[in-house]
């Protein structure tokens, strides 16, 4: 059964869902969740890029005899991207904590002292 470009599309769908959250939700932490979703989508996209049908993982330890291996580069990139995502999430959530401490709310429409 050929599943076509479904994995790519699912990854893009995750990005779109995250973007939707970022645009139309109002809670700051919900926004961060949206960012995490985008990031998950991008990670999934990167890994799917490296897949070869029937390939095995690029690890030679106890590897079964196989014809080909999947591409290692996207996996390395995704590792980087995952850790970056954790760093970003931690920083964003710390900021959210402080915004709540100062403003008493997490509503994005009420956190707008810097306007004009």
């Amino acid at each position: 059964m050929n599943i076509g470009n479904l994995p790519f599309i699912v990854a893009a769908l995750l990005v779109v869902l995250g973007l939707y959250t970022f645009l139309f939700k109002r809670n700051l932490i919900k926004l961060v969740i949206g960012i995490t979703l985008i990031e998950t989508g991008v990670n999934l996209f990167l890994v799917t890029l490296g897949y070869r049908t029937g390939g095995i993982s690029p690890i030679y330890t106890f590897a079964p005899e196989a014809q080909q291996m999947v591409l290692p580069t996207p996996q390395a990139l995704t590792l980087t991207s995952i850790v970056i995502g954790l760093a970003t999430t931690a920083l964003l959530l710390s900021f959210a904590v402080f915004v709540h401490r100062h403003y008493g709310t997490l509503d994005v429409r009420k956190v707008k002292e810097l306007k004009g």
Binding site: P7, V47, G50, Y51, G55, I56, I59
Partner: peptide
Amino acid sequence: EFYMLQAPDVAIAE
């Protein structure tokens, strides 16, 4: 899904 895409490294990290 990472696991099934033969990316155990990424699966562990995730």
